[in-house]
Simulated assay, not measured.
Amino acid sequence: MTEPLLDAAGIEKGYGRISVLKGVDLAIAAGDAHVVIGPNGAGKTTLFKVLSGELIPDKGVVRFAGHDVTAMPGWRRTRLGIGRTFQVARTFKDLTTFENVVVALEAKRRQTASVFELLRLRPSDTVRKAARAMLDEFSLDTVADWPAGLLSHGDKKSLELAMALAARPRLLMLDEPTAGMAPADRRRSIDLISRLLAKGEFSLLLTEHDMEVVFGLATSITVLNYGEVIATGSPEAVRSNPRVKEVYLGHDVSAS
């Protein structure tokens, strides 16, 4: 049996007396598009923070690509091949859209350079060409010279996604990638992520509330409730799971 790309076992995490994650198991195969869903307060964001290295679990083990990364800081996980975006897009707001992508590309190429060093670099023609190509692919070419701080919410999220993929991750983690988007931007984002996934260059792990996004992207789903896994499996299996329907107030989880 092939070893999962990401394998988290028995993950527990609490804040003081409050237990947020209670023995969570999660396995993601290479090429999988795995979505973690659950009501507010289910522990999704805390789980993401544990898997990305922002938090260290109280108990349990996280393995990525055969490495024990349980206590490994986030920057080292990034170099192993874990990329991440956030609910609130994190970009360099005073740099242009183009410059943000250049910094992300240079960060991948120059593994030891600090952000301050990267900002002083004069990018090569190869890097500039690659940045322009990414802006075209992400429909950001028309705002290439805009400061990132002036972009629309949808364009900021697209820029953050482009920057994460510039590092060529083996696993891309997206935390609520369409949160706050207008319907048109949300559909554009789903189409873009689907096209990128079809290339087979990375696996995907995301949290999402919008069921259109969930069932439009997922090859497998894990459902959290009060920090516990109550279901995991194919979208069809999760959709028909009685416990999942109960958690979602008796409604089919494909309804949004």
Rank of each mutant, 00 (worst) to 15 (best):
M1T: 04
P4S: 13
L6N: 11
A8I: 10
A9F: 00
A9M: 00
A9W: 00
R17P: 08
I18W: 03
V20P: 01
D25R: 10
A27V: 00
I37Y: 02
G38I: 07
G38C: 09
N40D: 07
K44L: 10
T46V: 14
L47A: 14
F48G: 12
V50Q: 06
L51S: 14
L55T: 03
L55E: 13
I56C: 04
P57G: 12
D58L: 08
K59E: 14
V62T: 11
A65W: 10
A65D: 15
G66R: 09
G66Q: 12
H67W: 05
V69A: 11
V69N: 10
W75P: 00
W75R: 13
R77V: 05
R77G: 04
R79H: 09
L80I: 08
I82G: 01
F86I: 07
A89I: 03
R90W: 01
F92T: 00
K93Q: 13
T97Y: 02
A107V: 03
Q111S: 13
Q111I: 13
A113G: 04
A113Q: 06
A113H: 12
L119I: 07
L119K: 08
R120A: 08
R122W: 06
R122S: 14
P123L: 12
D125N: 13
A130P: 01
M134G: 00
F138K: 05
F138D: 01
S139C: 01
A144F: 04
S152K: 09
H153D: 06
D155K: 14
D155I: 04
M163A: 09
A164P: 02
L165V: 11
L165I: 10
L172V: 09
M173N: 05
M173D: 03
L174R: 05
D175N: 13
G180Q: 04
M181L: 15
M181W: 07
R188Y: 06
S189V: 01
A198R: 13
E201R: 14
F202W: 09
V213L: 08
V213F: 07
V214G: 07
T219M: 12
L224W: 10
Y226S: 14
V229R: 14
I230Y: 08
I230L: 09
S234Q: 03
S234I: 05
P235W: 10
P235N: 05
E236Y: 00
V238Y: 05
P242M: 13
Y248H: 10
H251L: 14
D252K: 12
S254N: 06
S254P: 00
S256M: 13
S256G: 12
